[in-house]
Amino acid sequence: MDDKLDTRRVRYFMQVLESGSVRGAADVLDMDPSAVSRAIGILETECGLPLLERHGRGVVPTDAGQLLAGYVRRQQGQRQHLLAQMDSIRKIESGHIDIVAGEGYVDWLMRRSLRIFMASHPKITVNLDVASTDEIVRRVIEERAHIGMLFQPPKDERLTSHQSHAQPIQAMVLGSHPLAQLDRPLKLADLLPYPGATLHRNFGVRQHIEAAEISEGVRLPALLTTTSFSALGHFVSAGLGYTLGTRISLTPNADHPALVELPMKNPLLSQGRSHIVSRHGRLLPPAAAALLRQVVADMKGYADSVAGAGPGKPRTTARGRGAAG
């Protein structure tokens, strides 16, 4: 049907219906009535049916004319709805965002950027998935996620890093643990006598720890190996041993007032960085772009506050006692 309908002639037809006569439509359209009449005649030929019939001094639609008018009104309604939706997206009132992040970033997101953004944009839906470093990179590159947050992604020209900051790997223990009594940065060898918990090897944090182990000629045994940062925190809180991780990932687990974070001596454990990434060259939808700006600004503020706190000393991690939560 769309192939047979000339948009201009359909507009004349609808104006005739609205005006109730050809002459009335011609006045509104600022046209000669005969030109309007000829256009309607051509439209009727295209449709193969009469669309108007005389009624007194005016015209009314035939059955075919009513069908055409209903079709045009539905099309106009759909067009207006589409434009309203697009306008809503432009104003960041609606949309959908896919985020994939290491588990260590989830608590931070929900306490800060994501909580603030979703409160301000209640009609925007968000999908937040937790994944390993390798999976985060894969999803962002394959454009299955708009935004990725991860520790030390591999160098890949298909990724754009919008913000990064140093995330030293530290040890977390109970304040009563013997390691907490050492008034100095720890060597990996200091951890050997004690049970520990660690992440699986597809996590960037674990890969950094393994590089440090090689440099020191040490192999740390693991009592617990997991994909869960939360499990690491519970392991330490239960007094089962130590764990190694970044401040942003360990702090959310630190509800126990006796937990402390201890600096490590090995420089390899200080070289890792947190990154906020997207697919290089990808034009993000307005909603995702707005959230990305929010996350970048908030993470920069967090990184600046952590840097200002100063490095090198044991740090309690409970809420209200220097926690970065």
Rank of each mutant, 00 (worst) to 15 (best):
L5D: 01
D6S: 12
F13E: 01
V16C: 07
E18M: 12
S21D: 11
A25D: 11
M31C: 03
R38D: 10
G41T: 12
E44C: 08
T45W: 02
R54S: 13
H55F: 13
R57Q: 12
R57W: 11
G58C: 08
A69M: 01
H81I: 05
I89M: 15
G95T: 09
H96C: 00
H96T: 08
H96P: 04
G102A: 08
M110P: 03
R111T: 14
L114S: 02
R115Y: 08
R115F: 05
I116Q: 15
I116P: 00
I124Y: 00
T125Q: 05
V126S: 06
N127K: 14
S132T: 13
T133F: 02
E135F: 00
V137H: 05
R139I: 03
E142R: 15
F151W: 06
Q152I: 01
D156A: 07
L159Y: 04
S161K: 06
S161M: 06
Q163G: 01
S164F: 09
H165A: 09
M172E: 06
S176A: 10
Q181N: 09
A189P: 06
P195V: 09
R201G: 08
R201Y: 04
I209L: 13
I209T: 14
A211Y: 07
E216V: 05
G217I: 08
G217A: 09
V218Y: 08
R219T: 15
L220I: 09
L220T: 02
L223Q: 15
T225W: 02
S230M: 11
A231N: 06
L232T: 12
L250P: 03
L250V: 05
D255T: 15
H256Q: 10
A258S: 03
L259V: 14
V260L: 08
L268W: 13
Q271F: 01
Q271H: 09
Q271N: 08
Q271M: 09
R273Q: 13
S274Q: 12
H275R: 10
I276S: 06
I276D: 02
R279Y: 07
H280A: 15
A287G: 05
L291S: 02
L292A: 00
D298P: 00
Y302Q: 11
A303L: 03
A303H: 07
A309I: 07
K313C: 03
P314W: 04
P314G: 06
A318K: 12
R319Y: 10
G322C: 02
A324H: 11
